[in-house]
């Protein structure tokens, strides 16, 4: 029964991947008008524009171009950039490491910090310190990650000179330098993400603490922590999964902005350079990659749900 539900969900995933790719292609190719003219500027000779259209394949019908593009993408061929006429695939692949390092470390740190903080805020919710932690997370929610980043730079790079203000060193060149350069960007991402996640953790811990099984465990003399760890983890894991799925898009978007703050040359910087150069081939490829990864990871989260949550499994079997 679980399998059937997963298959249905997979069909929806396919549909949404297709729809997203079509929307992205449509916006990038139908809205701008005559791409060749835009790239050449207004004082180009008419023949030049025609030649460029021919080279970029802009003369053929929209739907044919979409299907060709999609076919290429499925074979990891994203076409060539409008500017410089270089293959887009390798261009993206070279930048992937920066963005992946940033997002993965950012999410890890956020979860690691949010779990104890959220649990603490829940356990002490009727005390001043618990309330203070909740209030602090409310502040974290309202602060733009890039503003936090700017201040981290001002404090730890400019004033204290403890950490580099910008730049990236590849993991393969030096793990120490890699980590050193990523500390500030990762903290600025995790600050905001952690605030959101800690609120979810807090409410799911409170929920567990109001359950009968928790009260029974306490009544027979278990400590709060022991009762939570033995009985509450599954519940908390489920709500953690939800929030990670939900936050993934915000995390990726946050990473794009954070890359700008710390001059990290990742996907975000490449994307923004392409936007200012109006290199729509590169723009649509990177946006597609980001949106598809959000959709696919959300699908995986859904599947993990089915496995973790026995209530869902039983509900499915009862049908």
């Amino acid at each position: 029964m679980v399998l059937r539900r997963v298959l249905v969900r997979a069909a929806w995933l396919l549909a949404s991947l297709l729809l997203a790719s079509f929307l992205i292609f449509a916006v990038a190719n139908a809205l701008p008008g005559d791409m060749a003219q835009i790239l050449l500027g207004t004082n180009a000779a008419p023949g030049e524009a025609e030649a460029l259209r021919e080279r970029l394949g802009l003369n053929r019908p929209f739907l044919v171009r979409y299907l060709e593009w999609l076919g290429g993408v499925l074979q990891l061929d994203f076409g060539n950039s409008y500017i410089g006429n270089r293959p887009i695939g390798p261009l993206i692949a070279a930048r992937l490491e920066v963005t992946l390092s940033l997002t993965i470390l950012g999410m890890l740190l956020a979860v690691l910090v949010a779990l104890p903080i959220g649990a603490y805020a829940a356990a002490r919710r009727r005390h001043l310190d618990g309330a203070a932690v909740s209030a602090l997370s409310q502040v974290g929610l309202a602060i733009p990650a890039f503003w936090a980043g700017i201040w981290l730079v001002i404090i730890f790079a400019v004033q204290l000179r403890w950490l580099p203000a910008s730049g990236y060193v590849s993991y393969w060149d030096s793990i120490g330098q890699w980590l050193l350069h990523l500390i500030l960007p990762v903290i600025s991402l995790a600050l905001v993400q952690g605030s959101v996640i800690s609120r979810y953790v807090r409410s799911s811990v409170i929920e567990v603490m109001q359950e009968d099984y928790f009260r029974t465990a306490r009544a027979v003399g278990w400590s709060k922590t022991r009762a939570l760890v033995r009985h509450g983890l599954r519940n908390i894991a489920i709500s953690l999964l939800t929030v990670i799925g939900l936050q993934l898009a915000t995390l990726l978007v946050g990473a794009i902005i954070i890359e700008q703050v710390f001059a990290l040359n990742g996907l975000g910087s490449t994307l923004l350079r392409a936007v200012s150069g109006r290199d729509l081939g590169v723009v649509q490829a990177i946006v597609l990659l980001l949106v598809w990864s959000v959709l696919i990871i959300n699908f995986l989260v859904d599947v993990a749900y089915q496995i973790i949550d026995p209530r869902l499994r039983r509900a499915a079997e009862a049908r």
Partner: peptide
């Protein structure tokens, strides 16, 4: 399907196109 399509990415697409 469209839930979770980040505003920023959409805005970047629009900014690139328009």
């Amino acid at each position: 399907i469209l839930y979770g399509f980040p505003a920023l990415l959409l805005a970047i697409l629009f900014a690139a196109a328009l």
